[in-house]
Design a protein around this nucleic acid. Structure first.
Length: 912
DNA sequence: TGGTTCACG
DNA sequence: GACGTACGTGAACCAG
């Protein structure tokens, strides 16, 4: 096998590691985010040792100093580069230590840039007939690409060869230097030719072959501006050509042979990791103390899925054997089967375990006959099974692995079993791959194991003929249930090792994983709803709907289904001849609020009545009727279910019923909130973050005026109105508010115009003015879009990732949509991270204050709702406020305070 | 099942 | 100069 030399552009990588990780500190309190990022990157590369295209030789190259021969050539070279951030500088020497800790050569040379050193080693290796891979995405280094040499961009694991260069720059690598010379580089202050960008440069070089030919042919160029620029700046272009040319003929400081890799000895790596306190990496190294579980081995030849191997456990000896297996393995995948998706109402039917790939069992507990012919099969009792499993589930040295473990946690908790410690494959996937697909078990099995799980419906059927799981015969039940545990275990082995390498550990360990039992308890608690009050509202709304229906039919002169947008459109725009606006995809008239509001404004009485009718039917069917159905007969309360891995940005979502969209904006709707009440002797506390997303935008985009306004507590929309319009009144403040929100969502002049009711030019002028007054916002947007284009994902302040593959989509619309998501996701996602951190700390903080009776019931994105004995209101309010206001600390120090508004009342409506 | 509408942050 | 037109959700209802 030919030698394969990997040359890592250390300097380039330091900056990427620095920018993609939050400002972590090591156990000495020194900044270490870049060190950590760098270490994980190197680890990942070394993991590929021994693979066919993995490294046989490897070195990391750094810049020695900022002065090189290029400064002698041109004193302005890199002159405008800002100094590195102050918390990065002290990490430079530590990163060199990290490289040495891996027993990997670390090369730098006075007077040469890392790029030049890389070029020298690359050429020397190619001359020996070696393969070369340069780990970097620096465009200057792309000049070196030739057969046998490629670039590797580890951020997206993309290899860059000649084809990719042609795709990106329009010319092959050997002509890239000429293109770069014409373009110039504002970051390095390479002048280039003014007015010539990537497109023009590529075109010129394609046409004339090289820079000298372009300059020679300048006189004959048609476009007058371009011609003159080329003539005027010919010398600058020639100098730029020399600046971008890489030096590749210097003698090597270390002969190539010395770069050979022979694996990584555990020392001194362990000492380094321990010194830095990188616990997850220590765990990976093996034999560490941080985690209970052994590090998952690299999946080698895992057995294929063979269902007949799964065991049905129906006697105590077999169960004991499986439990012993789990103790020996140190980690066990667990899945519970029930007769209902609602885990508050459900009965436990069976439990499956997996201790190794392909090695899984199903323990039936409550399988009955089919209700007709078959008798209940012989099986262990629930008490026996749970009694034997409890020590395993609660053993601190055995890791329990689940897929959507929240469900199983609630099932076990209801039977007096606490599951700990645990991992959740759904959350692992969510924190690694958000934006790349769904995180359900079937999705994950397809994506990672190329395996199609047995579908639930093939076991239990669908629709009216569906049966519950306790009616499924044991052989079929075992195949299905044991497979779930098997798949879960295999997924964990794939996903868990990626956590540290892809910088997802912090979000997973500090935010999402510890949140699971917190949410489980909230769901179990539920909230009390006044059924009689809802029934009264239903009756009242029903009357109102009938009245409005009659009036609408009368005005229209015909009876029709008001709820059918199609019929309504025909009646309004064809029957009554009103002026219709837009049509939807299906060619039907649009009858949405904006259209009906427009008609009402033009004096169409029927439009107002249809709007009222819509509001009433919405409130009745979605809320007052439906909520009564959702009251659990056992507890008398409503138990929503929170999805932890659905929202792209890191938010929770609530379903069955959705308690995150209970009306509040209109007075009628608000009455529904009054039906959410505290139990006897208790009150509800509602605590919500005030303007959290705007505060985060002020911090992340670094806008001095906004930060000051939040610090001083001045009204933020008035401040914006002053900046934009020079005066504050109801009109300007309202417009400023709209613009402030538009910014958070990724603005377009068209959209803003539609919302402000002005024309596009007017809206554009306002946007320009906003950017002029708050240049930080403009910069944030530009940097965010650049980041997502380069790396394919964006991150929150806490490092949560959202992948946006649509940024490379086919249509402009698709790409712009991804840009807007990219602008919004870091802000919305950071807000989600913050409230999740508050929720994780809330229980311990309340308990420490002796407030164990305070129960957290609901989360509505920026609001938490609690129920507590009235006597504890003052003490609880203080703890809740403190916990929420300090939730970002110590990981992130925000430049703005987080404001929390708190209300107390007997019902949710009045607690605001 | 997809489209439309509308409740929330 | 064309593109499509504010971010993130869940639920009800209609129509095919």
């Amino acid at each position: 096998m030919a030698n394969h030399l990997y040359l890592v552009d250390g300097s380039g990588y330091i900056f990427r590691a620095y920018h993609r990780l939050p400002p972590l500190t090591n156990r000495h309190g020194q900044p270490a985010g870049a060190v950590y990022g760098f270490t994980t990157m190197l680890w990942k590369l070394l993991d590929d040792l021994g693979r066919a295209d993995g490294p046989s030789h490897l070195a990391v190259i750094f810049d020695a100093s900022s002065k090189t021969f290029r400064n002698t050539m041109y004193d302005q070279y890199k002159a405008h580069r800002p100094p590195p951030p102050p918390d990065l500088t002290p990490q430079f020497p530590v990163i060199r230590d990290a490289v040495r800790a891996f027993s990997v050569p670390c090369i730098e040379e006075e007077g040469l840039e890392a790029d030049d050193i890389i070029a020298c080693y690359a050429k020397a290796a190619l001359a020996e007939g070696w393969q070369v891979t340069i780990v970097s995405s620096d465009k200057d280094l792309m000049q070196l690409i030739e057969p046998g040499l490629d670039l590797l961009d580890t951020m997206n694991n993309r290899r860059i060869g000649a084809a990719e260069v042609v795709e990106k720059f329009g010319v092959p690598p050997e002509q890239l230097g000429d293109v770069l010379a014409l373009m110039g580089d504002s970051v390095d202050n390479v002048p280039g030719v003014p007015g010539v960008g990537a497109k023009t440069a590529a075109q010129l070089i394609q046409e004339h072959g090289n820079l000298e030919n372009v300059l020679a042919a300048a006189d004959g160029i048609k476009k007058p501006k371009l011609r003159q620029s080329l003539i005027d700046h010919a010398d600058a272009a020639r100098m730029s050509r020399e600046l971008v040319r890489l030096v590749c003929d210097r003698p090597l400081a270390q002969p190539l042979d010395q770069l050979a890799m022979q694996g990584v000895p555990p020392e001194p790596l362990r000492a380094f990791l321990e010194d830095q306190g990188f616990r997850s990496l220590l765990t990976k190294l093996g034999g560490a103390t941080a985690d209970a579980a052994p590090p998952p081995p690299r999946p080698a030849d895992e057995p294929a899925f063979v269902h007949k191997d799964y065991e049905t456990v129906t006697d105590e000896a077999a169960l004991d054997r499986w439990i012993a297996d789990a103790f020996a393995a140190g980690a066990v995948a667990v899945d519970t089967e029930t007769n209902d998706l609602d885990c508050i109402r459900a009965t436990l039917v069976g439990i499956s375990l997996a201790t190794a790939p392909g090695k899984a069992c199903y323990i039936p507990i409550a399988h009955g006959g089919d209700g007709l012919l078959a008798e209940a099969p012989a099986q262990l009792s629930r008490e026996t099974v749970l009694g034997k499993l409890k020590p395993l589930m609660e053993d601190p040295s055995i890791l329990k692995i689940g897929q959507n473990l929240k469900y199983d946690l609630i099932m076990f908790r209801r039977h007096g079993v606490d599951v700990t410690p645990y991992d959740d494959t759904m959350l692992l996937s969510y924190d690694l791959d958000a934006g790349l697909g769904a995180h359900g078990m079937d999705d994950l099995a397809k994506r990672h194991l190329s395996h199609a799980c047995i579908e639930f419906k093939t076991v239990c059927g669908t629709g009216k003929s569906a049966i519950t799981f306790d009616k499924v015969p044991l052989d079929k039940a075992t195949e299905y249930a044991a497979e779930d545990a098997d798949v879960t275990l295999r997924l964990w082995r794939k996903l868990k090792p990626r956590l540290g390498l892809e910088a997802a550990t912090r979000v997973y360990e500090l935010v999402d994983r510890p949140l699971v039992p917190v949410i489980a308890e909230m769901e179990r608690a539920g909230i009390l709803v006044d059924r009689a009050e809802l029934a009264r509202l239903s009756a009242e709304f029903g009357q109102e709907i009938l009245r409005l229906e009659g009036e609408v039919h009368e005005i229209a002169g015909t009876k029709f289904a008001i709820g059918s947008p199609q019929q309504l459109g025909k009646v309004l725009f064809e029957g009554m001849g009103l002026k219709g606006g837009k049509k939807g995809k299906s060619g039907a008239w649009s009858t949405d609020v904006t259209e009906l509001e427009r008609l009402a404004g033009e004096g169409a009485e029927i439009a107002r009545k249809v709007l009222d009718w819509r509001q009433m039917t919405k409130l009745k069917s979605t809320y007052t009727d439906a909520l009564q159905q959702e009251i659990n007969p056992e507890t008398g309360r409503v138990h929503t279910s929170y999805s932890l891995a659905v929202a792209q940005t890191g938010r929770l979502s609530s379903n069955e019923p959705n308690l995150q969209n209970i009306p509040i904006r209109t007075e009628v709707g608000r009455r529904i909130r009054h039906a959410f009440v505290a139990g006897p002797g208790n009150v509800l506390i509602s605590a919500d973050y005030s303007q959290i997303e705007l505060r985060l935008a002020a911090h992340m985009a670094d806008v001095p005026q906004l930060k000051q306004a939040f610090a001083e507590g001045t009204d933020i929309h008035s401040l914006t109105a002053t900046e934009l319009f020079g005066e504050v009144n109801r009109d300007t403040r309202g417009r400023a508010k709209t613009i402030n929100f538009a910014i958070l969502y990724g603005i377009s002049s068209w959209g803003l115009a539609a919302r402000l009711g002005t024309d596009r030019a007017d809206a554009q002028a306002m946007i320009d003015r906003y950017f002029e007054r708050f240049p930080g916002i403009n910069r944030y947007i530009a940097e965010t879009i650049a980041q997502v284009r380069e790396h394919g994902f964006v991150t929150t302040l806490f490092g949560r990732k959202l992948h946006l593959p649509a940024i490379k989509g086919k249509t402009v619309g698709e790409r712009q949509g991804a840009e807007r998501q990219a602008i919004n996701a870091p802000i919305q996602g950071t807000s989600a991270d913050i409230i999740k951190r508050a929720m994780v700390r809330m229980g311990p903080n309340l308990a420490a204050a002796g407030l164990g009776d305070v129960r957290m019931l609901l989360q509505v994105h920026d609001e938490l709702v609690f129920e507590l004995p009235e006597a504890q209101v003052d003490a609880a309010t203080a703890v809740i406020r403190e916990t929420m206001e300090r939730a970002a600390e110590p990981a992130i120090r925000l430049d703005v305070p987080l404001g929390v508004e708190i209300g107390v009342a007997a019902n949710w409506g009045d607690a605001h």
